[in-house]
Amino acid sequence: MSSTIAADTIEVMEQQDTDPRSAGRSLTAEEKRDIDREFSHYEDRDSVALEALRVVQKHRGWISDDTLYAIADYLAVSPTQLESIATCYQLIFRQPVGKEVIFLCKSSSCWIMGCEKLQRHLEEQLGIRPGQTTPDGIFTLLETPCLGDCDKAPVMMVGEEMHRHMSADKLDEFILEKKKHHADQSAD
């Protein structure tokens, strides 16, 4: 066995000292209510796994290990089963993301219309690569498959909002605006 594995083993010992499913990692009443609402739409509790992840992510921005355990407890499924679902879907974030998640469309039409160039511009401006978050915690850049707006390519989605016919100038404008917005927010 290689030494990396030995190192893993030590890590585990430490991890196991605290039961990952112990208290203090529970869902809020609101999150539970939101999940409960989903139950009526499905034939069994397990089926709500993805819905529950989505609902809680809406509240917390991402799914931490603790959150995952809390949801698993609530749904009475094992954390491994839930992880298996969570890691099957790209919009479930198992790592923290910034306040503005930029989904840059990388599919065929946007590519023809120059999304690579756009991406390079974005990466230069923000200093991050896909999957990364700016140090100020504002922007996360993600590449996404076709956003279904190909006639307005290149496009990107930020949070829930579409930005169409993008160009380097429009990107700069967008970044500036968002930076300002978040600066104002934190000043309040």
């Binding site: 196991q16 499924v77 094992s78 491994t80 099957c88």
Partner: peptide, 21 residues
């Protein structure tokens, strides 16, 4: 058993537990 699953997808699919143990 409920603590071994396929995790992830595509070429990255991983067979393991949620965490070591």
């Amino acid at each position: 058993g409920d603590d071994l699953e396929a995790l992830g997808r595509n070429n990255q699919v991983y067979f393991g537990r949620q965490c070591d143990g």
